[in-house]
Nucleic acid binder design. Structure first.
Lengths: 234, 234
DNA sequence: CGGTCTCTGAACGTTCCATTAACACTGACG
DNA sequence: CGTCAGTGTTAATGGAACGTTCAGAGACCG
């Protein structure tokens, strides 16, 4: 699968205007995306549960439940990327959106071509991307808050360096999946890390363990998979 | 504490039907909110004084005192956000409510989930909203009065320049959230600040710290998050 | 058992970033 | 016109984080 091939990915489009939904759907489908539509908050939540979308396009102004509430609803359940749509002149509380973990904003009327482009961008980014603010990860006695970039283990705050935080966040959002050191370099470090020394990862894993494992000599959270790499265990 | 964590916040629910109160209380408690109940105007006012709620859910149709009178009672005392409940068919004078300063409306019968969502939204909005004159922010030993644009730290008045005040006010109204320098530029400075030097923020943070931190070399209020930005700590 | 991989602990230079002080620009005001 | 507070920029400094390396110990596997 090439990077620009999004076949099999699903996008949920939430807007109360059928026209908007239709146009958006047309353009996204053309990119090989599956599209699910919803016209209000309730059906959006239902569709979210059912279709497990890889991305959500969300109108801020919706009947009954507004987009921001919906966004935090989504955020309380997943880390899925979200692109918000706002009408011109609408008071776009960008900060609120960013705090809640919106990935991008588009002001209506927007060009569908541009929306499609943003969708592609966000999807690409979301592969390796870290956590959205508002989506607090809690596994075991670990608690990762991307908003404040704080980590607690067993209620006790732990100081992590940026790389350590990013590394942990990545692993925690892909639990039980094994990653080679080179993969982690690719995902957590800047792009083009092919030339880098994979043992860099080893060292960072080590320092991480010393901070978050109750017994670093016998790691329970970040497991070594022999000959392969590491795995985050819940 | 994440943004979607409202623990410690108190909501006052005013309705004469015990059933309604119970259902609402159940849902709000689930969100980590403390809930106080009142069944009529008099007890509502008492509860308001005692529990100092962060938000009020107010039925319009109450025995003895109606909701609108109660709303203006509240308004004369505080800036607390209010969500009004109106029965279907009741002549819902939206305009009247909005003039008196209601933040949102819900028509009975309403879905408790939706009410909970609106409560979250309004609470978040009141977090992020610019400061209303007359509404004083107090966190820790900091006291920020937007009306007079005065700041006190530990009872001692502190002179801040306009930018310093705006910067502090923004951070204080978004506690624990990390903001990049560029984000702060965007929010506190005029729009279209992309070309500006982010180190401008650094300098202002520094000057702020010297004025409000008891020990500027070891800041406790405005925390540096390395490689990311700054965070306001309560 | 022997070979391979990983962990440990430390050290090192490097790079990046926040801090700091100093300076230049601006508009307000007397 | 001169002063001054507020502001933004710049350059120097210091420190935190990073990547790398190494040697010895330990773990795993065939």
């Amino acid at each position: 699968m090439s990077l620009s091939d999004f076949s099999g990915r699903t996008v949920l489009v939430v807007d109360d205007e059928p026209m908007v939904r239709e146009v958006v759907t047309t353009y996204l489908t053309r990119d090989g995306l599956d599209v699910t539509e919803a016209s209000d908050g309730a059906s959006a939540l239902r569709a979210f549960e059912e279709s497990q979308p890889d991305l959500i396009v969300l109108d801020v102004m919706l009947p009954k439940i507004d987009g921001y509430s919906l966004l935090s609803e989504f955020r309380s359940r997943s880390n899925v990327p979200v692109i918000m749509l706002t009408a011109r002149g609408e008071e776009t509380d960008r900060v609120l959106g960013l705090e809640l973990g919106a990935d991008d904003y588009l002001v209506k009327p927007f060009s569908p071509r541009e929306l499609a482009a943003r969708v592609r961008t966000v999807l690409k980014r979301s592969d390796g991307a870290g956590l959205h603010p508002g989506f607090v990860v809690e596994v075991g006695d670990l608690r990762i808050d991307p908003g404040s970039r704080e980590v607690e283990v067993g209620g006790r705050a732990v100081e992590l360096t940026p790389k350590e935080f990013d590394l942990l966040a990545f692993l925690a959002t892909h639990p039980r999946q094994v990653f080679a050191r080179s993969q982690l370099l690719e995902q957590v470090w800047d792009s083009n890390t092919a030339w880098q020394d994979p043992s860099t990862v080893t060292v960072h894993i080590r320092r991480l363990r010393q901070k978050i494992e109750s017994n670093p000599d016998n790691p329970k959270v970040i497991i070594t998979v022999w000959g392969v790499g590491y795995r985050f265990e819940t």
